[in-house]
Amino acid sequence: MVRFFGALVGMGFIAALLWSFGWGVNAQLTETHTQSVEHRFHQEPRDVAFSTDGPFGKFDRAQLQRGFQVYKEVCAACHSLGQVAFRNLADLGYEEPEIKAIAAQWQIEVPSINPDTGEATTRKAIASDHFPSPYANEVAARAGNNNALPPDLSLIVKAREGGAPYIYSLLTGYQNAPADLPAEARPGQGLHYNPYFANLNIAMPPPLTADGQVTYADGTNPTRENMAKDVAAFLTWTAEPNLESRHRTGLAVLIFLLIATILAYMAYQNIWHGGADRRVRQTGPLDPENQAKSRAAKKEAGIKG
């Protein structure tokens, strides 16, 4: 019965699948297939190394500070870092007074209320505030950016398949649209051609336009490449501030587990294939001692067998 109905159900599914498959083959044969424009022009992120790569990866504090400077002077005009507080800058090596100063001098104020009237207003940021958005709300943000929304950048490195190399490639990837780009894929009003962006045309105006746009305190040459790389490194930190302790804990845990597993293996081998003196003594009913006891008990109770 089960097998009969099973076969019936199976044939049903197979028939429906063959039907779909047939139409699929038909479509393949009759329709002409053109590659989508994105498919043809989209580029994978460029290869670029970061100090956080690999199991021993660490943050380069000087680079993070430079990246923070790029964020502060360029990106913060449009992008918030809602998951990150000013006080977290201590991780980058800033001292408390410096952090307080950075917060107090931040260009964008944070929303607040007037303590006397209760009216909505803004105030200077303090260390416990998170990096604010320059826009009061999404509508304002879109209005100021050609109807596109500048995303919060806190998690952007983890929220894009390509990670930090993608951010770096995106920032350095602005270029003139290639001549053979079909008309319908050309950047419209307020859009910019960038082959690293998923749909090729991005609403963000090129943020890093010229070498020397920021002046690095540590003397590093602020080329566009360097600025892009530094801010990508900084955004790696905002996305995964615990990366270093994760790597450190991971190595310690692995060393512990390796030793524990080797010991477990030795115990296993010892028990299964150990020498005669290591045999496990059985104390069950097969133990002659127990058998004698059991016989005696049965005899006493008058049970045969």
Binding site: P55, R246, H247, T249, G250, L251, V253, L254, L257, L258, A260, T261, A264, Y265, A267, Y268, N270, I271, W272
Partner: peptide, 22 residues
């Protein structure tokens, strides 16, 4: 004993993913 060894291998694989490719 045999499972103890198995658990060790499992934890190693788990730790590698968890700490290095989370």
């Amino acid at each position: 004993a045999k499972d103890g060894f198995g658990v060790g291998l499992f934890m190693i694989a788990f730790a590698i993913m968890l700490f290095f490719f989370p």
